[in-house]
């Protein structure tokens, strides 16, 4: 690796240094825009006791659902964990801990983590189980709760296109949590569909600058669809 070139050639190298009991922040929404090959590499490595922050926990046999099979996840921080029987089973039997976090709060916690903001006030969750035990402040007659930023030892994410410096472009709604997840990890690992030479991306069209990216790898993706919904042609 030289200068700003972030490209690495193997998934093994991509997650070098990931150890048991670390915190990983993952991009994706449902199965859309998930770092599917990096998740498979965590499964192959067999890292255990992980705390994972991600909007969802995958589905049975797909995405983060794969890491439940060998009970690699100790704690899940997510906004929605339905559609996953194994997850429910491990949760109800106490093998897995879950911290349900409102979707916007989760995104903001990652953003704050990456932007050096230790905590922020939000109205979301005030007066609900989410707000229990959290500091409350009143601004302009409304109640807000203090939410702390989220940081990870690693972040794993997926983008569409990158140049070798790690400047990233995302595609359609596969963007979702990926940009914030990347900024919130000490070591940010990003897998992409295509890597181009530096200078080939228009600086005005880069969604996330390479400064946030530590390791970049090109992969091939299955891109599973959770709810294939179509209309009949007229």
């Amino acid at each position: 690796m030289a200068g700003f070139d972030k490209v690495i050639s193997s998934y093994e190298e991509a997650l070098d240094g990931l150890e048991d009991n670390m915190t990983v922040i993952a991009g994706g929404f449902g199965l859309c825009g998930i770092p599917e090959n990096l998740i498979k590499e965590i499964k192959r490595k067999g890292t255990k006791g992980l705390t994972i922050a991600s909007n969802n926990a995958g589905v049975d046999g797909k995405g983060l659902g794969l890491l439940l099979e060998d009970q690699q996840i100790k704690k899940m921080i997510a906004s929605y964990v339905g559609e996953n029987a194994l997850f429910m089973e491990q949760l109800l039997s106490g093998k897995l801990e879950v911290e349900l976090t409102p979707q916007g709060t989760l995104a903001e916690k990652m953003r704050a983590g990456g932007a050096g903001i230790p905590a922020f006030f939000t109205a979301t969750g005030y007066g609900t189980p989410v707000g229990e035990g959290k500091e409350v402040r009143e601004f302009d007659g409304r109640h807000y709760i203090l939410e702390e930023a989220l940081k990870g030892d690693f972040s794993i994410a997926k983008a569409w296109k990158a140049d070798r410096f790690g400047n990233l472009m995302f595609r359609k709604t596969a963007r979702n949590f990926n940009p914030m997840a990347i900024t919130a990890g000490k070591i940010a690992v990003v897998e992409v569909e295509e890597i181009v030479e530096v200078g080939m991306l228009d600086p005005d069209e880069i969604h996330l600058p390479g400064i946030y990216v530590n390791r970049l790898i090109q992969g091939t993706f299955a891109k599973d669809i959770e709810q294939r919904t179509v209309r009949a042609s007229a």
Partner: peptide, 20 residues
């Protein structure tokens, strides 16, 4: 609206995870 079969794009879903 929901896509025609040939328009389905795994990178384009709604909050209910349906293709749109």
């Amino acid at each position: 609206q929901f896509p025609l079969e040939e328009e389905v794009d795994a990178d384009l879903i709604n909050a209910g995870k349906q293709t749109v």
